[in-house]
Amino acid sequence: MNRGNRILLSCVYWAFVLYVFVPLLLMILMGFKDSKFIGFPIRSWTLDWYTGVFDDAAVPSAFVYSVVIAVLATMISVFVGTWIAVLLEGRKFLGRTAMFGLTVLPALVPGIISAIAFRIYARWLGIEPGMGAIVWAHAVHNVPFVALVVMARLSTLPKSQIEAARDLGADPIIAFLRITLPYLVPAILGASIFCLLLSFDDFVRSFFLGGYEPTLPVLIFAKLRSGMSPEINAIATIALVLTAAIGIWAERFTRRMSKDT
């Protein structure tokens, strides 16, 4: 169509790719610097910061703590979010719009306000700051994402399949378990991975609802406040590689699954 335009736009795209990747690549490089001082240029290289990560017991334990929280929160969000999606999708009832609005509310409340509201509510319910409170806040915050993803998938389910199952004698529960649920699996898996990453990466809710034990982002934040060091780069790089790897794998996996069904 328009060659000049096209070339210009592709330059913009690749510049944007650089913009999103370069800061992370620089951060990774800095983790191999053989000096305590953060800054360029890097003259000599070392792996000591990485071996040091495992000597400091706080890092592996924060990592495990974050993973456990993410898994528990995701299980709750997936259960609740799927249920809400089944209620909302393809059904007309009084107050559906209000129900939808309330469902997506936690995703729209700005981070700090959501953290404050959860903190007050947890106090009111008598939940002590700590793992339970973080799991609960993450679970509530992630429900809208599950509901939206599952609703999108559910809207493409051919109605005739459910009708056929019902005609063959399946009650609504069996029809749901044998037709709807298997059809939703790719969406549920995709949403789970997204929730896991969201929860694992979350800072503000974990920070305000946490007890003495820090999650990984809270630990990195605390270390950053007391000064930059290549040790933080090593920790951050490990977290980065893991989250990106899980994300890429999930993307490929769910794409293949939704193609198959």
């Binding site: 992370l24 990453l197 694992f200 950053l224 951050a236 977290a239």
Partner: peptide
């Protein structure tokens, strides 16, 4: 964008 808020801020 799968990388967390804190790590990207540090970058």
């Amino acid at each position: 964008f799968w990388v967390g808020e804190i790590v990207r801020t540090y970058a």
